[in-house]
Amino acid sequence: MTLEDALGLYSYWIVIFLMMTGFYIVISGKNLIKTIIGLNIFQTSVFLLYITMGKVQGGTAPILRDGGGHSDHHGEGHNHGGEHGEAIHQGSEHGSVVVDHAVQQASFTEDVIATVGEAAAHSGAEYQGVLYTNPLPSVLMLTAIVVGIATTALALALIVRIREEYGTIEEDEILAIDRKSDS
């Protein structure tokens, strides 16, 4: 293993360290709130794992620059402006939204074919010569974070109820009370 390899893998190791810290908190503690904190740390480390995997060397945040692409698109719109406008006008004269829609779809398809042909020449999420970091992990983790806080809130609500019923939030004491009431 060379230094170069280690530098390529350091992000995973950090994530694994954080993950294992969270895991340790979950399995070693008896306090319910501490367990939730441990789960949160574990969860955040998973978010970080996905995000590090999406990063491309030399890439930038997946917010496309308002550069050539946009004006190209508009320019094309201008070129075809006349005929499209006419077709749409006809469409609305006939009172048919469907025709109108189809015409627009056709124009988008043209654009798509043009852009895809351009993109096929390069690898990676490239647009207008700028390399972008993969947006998919971001999308997945965005949804995961919000679901995570919803489930955390639910867990905390259950802890509050447990405290009201048992008078404690320590796991072993709750088990002892349960055993006593069973026997």
């Binding site: 390899d5 530098l7 390529g8 893998l9 350091y10 992000s11 995973y12 590090t52 995997m53 999406g54 990063k55 491309v56 060397q57 030399g58 890439g59 997946p62 496309l64 798509v112 852009t115 895809v116 351009e118 993109a119 096929a120 690898s123 990676g124 999420a125 490239e126 647009y127 390399l131 972008y132 993969n134 947006p135 998919l136 992990p137």
Partner: peptide
């Protein structure tokens, strides 16, 4: 490796969806 442009995640699904 970190930031590798040829990593599986960067190749599949086809990242041209960003341009599309």
């Amino acid at each position: 490796a970190f930031g590798d442009p040829n990593a599986p995640i960067q190749v599949y699904p086809d990242p041209s969806f960003v341009a599309k």
